[in-house]
């Protein structure tokens, strides 16, 4: 087999109006238009969505899982970013 390889695409689907697009999987296609058609056939056979995005996998910039702890460290140490950090007397009512 000496056939050229076809590019890999990632597929994102908006399940219904008001929700964001969510990654559902990937597929191979020769260009964007064909990727959209194939995404429709492969990933929306049961009314899974109202909109499809496809993007070539090699165009996605991603964080490195190795850097995960360093990258997301502030979420753990800056607990004052959460509402539950603050003492508000109960009798103030709902806030």
């Amino acid at each position: 087999m000496s056939e050229a390889t076809t590019p890999l695409y990632e597929v994102f689907i908006r399940p219904k109006a008001g929700l964001s697009h969510k990654h559902v999987g990937s597929l191979h296609a020769c260009d964007d238009d064909m990727a959209l058609h194939m995404a429709r056939d492969v990933y929306t056979r049961r009314a899974e969505g109202v909109s499809i995005w496809v993007v070539r996998s090699d165009l996605i910039a991603a964080s490195d899982p190795v850097d995960k702890d360093m990258l997301f460290e502030p979420t753990a140490s800056k607990i004052y970013r959460h509402p539950t950090f603050y003492d508000v007397p109960d009798d103030v009512g709902h806030m």
């Binding site: 087999m1 390889t5 890999l8 999987g25 990937s26 597929l27 191979h28 492969v42 056979r45």
Partner: peptide
Amino acid sequence: QDEAGHGLYLYSAAETLGVSRE
């Protein structure tokens, strides 16, 4: 048609491990 789809989801999953579809 579903079975073809299953094959495709699974090939994609295998490809994430560093083997090509071809």
